[in-house]
Design a binder for these strands. Sequence first.
DNA 1: TTTTACTTTCAAAAGTTTCTGAAAGTTACA
DNA 2: TGTAACTTTCAGAAACTTTTGAAAGTAAAA
Lengths: 166, 166
Amino acid sequence: MELDEGKQKFIQSWGTLGSNWGINRTMAQIHALLLICPEALSAMEIKEQLNISMGNTNMNIRSLIDWGLVYKKLKPGERKEFFVAEKDMWEVVKKIVIQRKKRELEPVIKMLDEISAVQGHCEESDEFCKVVKDIKLFSNKADSILDKLIKADSNWFMKSFINLIK
Amino acid sequence: MELDEGKQKFIQSWGTLGSNWGINRTMAQIHALLLICPEALSAMEIKEQLNISMGNTNMNIRSLIDWGLVYKKLKPGERKEFFVAEKDMWEVVKKIVIQRKKRELEPVIKMLDEISAVQGHCEESDEFCKVVKDIKLFSNKADSILDKLIKADSNWFMKSFINLIK
DNA sequence: TTTTACTTTCAAAAGTTTCTGAAAGTTACA
DNA sequence: TGTAACTTTCAGAAACTTTTGAAAGTAAAA
């Protein structure tokens, strides 16, 4: 297989994967491009390689920086900004977990706390409270596991998990 | 808080959560409704409680059954079908993991195998191969962990994980 | 201070996904 | 076999998301 064909396949698939993970297609494609690039790229180079508009390029580079998946890199003597991707896969997963936990798990836990104030006087409210209690327990457990994963360093996690699954 | 207000909040939030997880909003809302319902409901009752069309109701009940999140239940003497949700949260998570693994992780692993045939003769292809190899390693690890999680039973998983993170 | 090289914003356009409801299909019983 | 009760399908409509590009903003260098 030719390098260019491989690059295209990789960028397209990473885009599809991303859009299933709350990362929009272009955002994931930019990340893919930077991942496989040995050099930092400028916004213009990214725009041209992916054939997308300036606005789209800029917006999605900013989102990637917000998520912590891409870093700005200034080259001495150059005025424009260059960008590099976070290449450690465990770091990438961690950054995504941090964002999604904040955006999804935390609001759910808040909602569950609110609705567990429902008073139970009938079969329907008993069932409701039971389900809410179950989900709360599960979510809190997930929250604490994710916190620990995020804080644990790459090696600790890998070693323990590998031991666990062997 | 009143039961009805709690129910509404729960159904809405579950819908939002679902749509971030490859489960469309209505599909997640139907699941939420069935989760908190002590009785099996018919398609008509679901349609009416959620105020959605017949077609939408039917389509999403079928998807929920495909995902294994909802079961058909026939009542003796009744011609129509009734539906109940899977209520064990760990089962719910497992079913979602099974589907998403099949739809997302497996195609990525296939793609990575294809593109690792790229020949390296320059800095660019070396970097490409290195990144692909890294992601392949990571994905295969994830795949095997998920397989083991899916096969392990609820208690084993919980006990080990709790021990691991304490 | 003016020019130039870049970055950011945002309203409208394009693209994608989801929902509707009428029509067709199925099944069970009289 | 006919009819009524229920389920499924699908094409178009509606809702939502992403992308574009022109215009405005910013800051370094001339």
